[in-house]
C-alpha cells in the first residue's frame, strides 16, 4: 500500500513495452494496490498504468465513476491485469491530458465502444463492454503498456497540442 510518484516524460520507462503477468502473485496485487492508491492520491485521477509508477508489467487501474463525464456510465473501479481489447467500434474525439506529460493536452480520436478482457486482482477472468469516456480512459491507460503516449496519437500539432490551463 503506497502512493508512488508518477514518472514524467522523458523518463525512458514510459516508452517501453510492459511484460505480461505470468502468475498473479502478491507482487502483482501490491502493484494493483499501489496504482489505486496513487490514482486516488492524484485528486482521484481516472486511471494509472503500471509503467507510470515505474513497473513494466501489464497492469492498469481505471475508475471514471468520480468524474463528470463518466459518472453516468461506468463499471466503477476496474483493476486490470493483462488487459486486451478484443473488439472496438465507433469513434470519438477528446482532448486528452496525461499525468506523465504535464501541462499539455491534445485532440485524440479513438473508438468509443470497446470490449476488453482482463484478469482482476482475485484472478477472475472478466470481459466488459465500455463506451464513451470509460472506453477512452481504458484505451489511454492500455497505451501506456505498449510505450505509447497520447502524443503518439495526435493527428496534427497545429493547435492540437495546447498548454493545459492551470489546475
Amino acid at each position: 500500500m503506497a502512493v508512488r510518484p508518477i514518472l514524467l516524460y522523458p523518463d525512458p520507462m514510459l516508452k517501453q513495452v510492459a511484460k505480461s503477468v505470468e502468475e498473479l502473485d502478491e507482487t502483482v496485487v501490491a502493484v494493483v494496490q499501489d496504482l489505486v492508491d496513487t490514482m486516488i492520491d492524484a485528486g482521484h485521477s481516472v486511471g494509472v498504468a503500471a509503467p507510470q509508477i515505474g513497473v513494466l508489467r501489464r497492469v492498469v487501474v481505471v475508475d471514471v465513476s468520480k468524474s463528470k463525464l463518466g459518472k453516468e456510465n461506468n463499471h466503477g473501479l476496474l483493476e486490470m491485469v493483462n488487459p486486451e481489447i478484443i473488439e472496438k467500434s465507433g469513434s470519438t474525439t477528446m482532448r486528452e491530458g496525461c499525468m506523465s506529460v504535464p501541462d499539455y493536452t491534445g485532440n485524440v480520436t479513438r473508438p468509443d465502444h470497446i470490449v476488453v478482457e482482463f484478469t482482476d486482482r482475485t484472478g477472475q477472468l472478466r470481459v466488459i463492454e465500455a463506451t464513451g469516456f470509460e472506453a477512452v480512459a481504458i484505451q489511454h491507460e492500455l497505451d501506456h503498456l505498449d510505450g505509447m503516449l497520447f502524443l503518439d496519437r495526435v493527428s496534427s500539432l497545429k493547435t492540437d497540442l495546447y498548454r493545459r490551463k492551470g489546475k
Binding site: M94, G97, V136
Partner: peptide, 8 residues
C-alpha cells in the same frame, strides 16, 4: 461540437 478536455 465541443471537444471535452479529459485528464487521464
Amino acid at each position: 461540437r465541443i471537444i471535452p478536455t479529459v485528464e487521464l
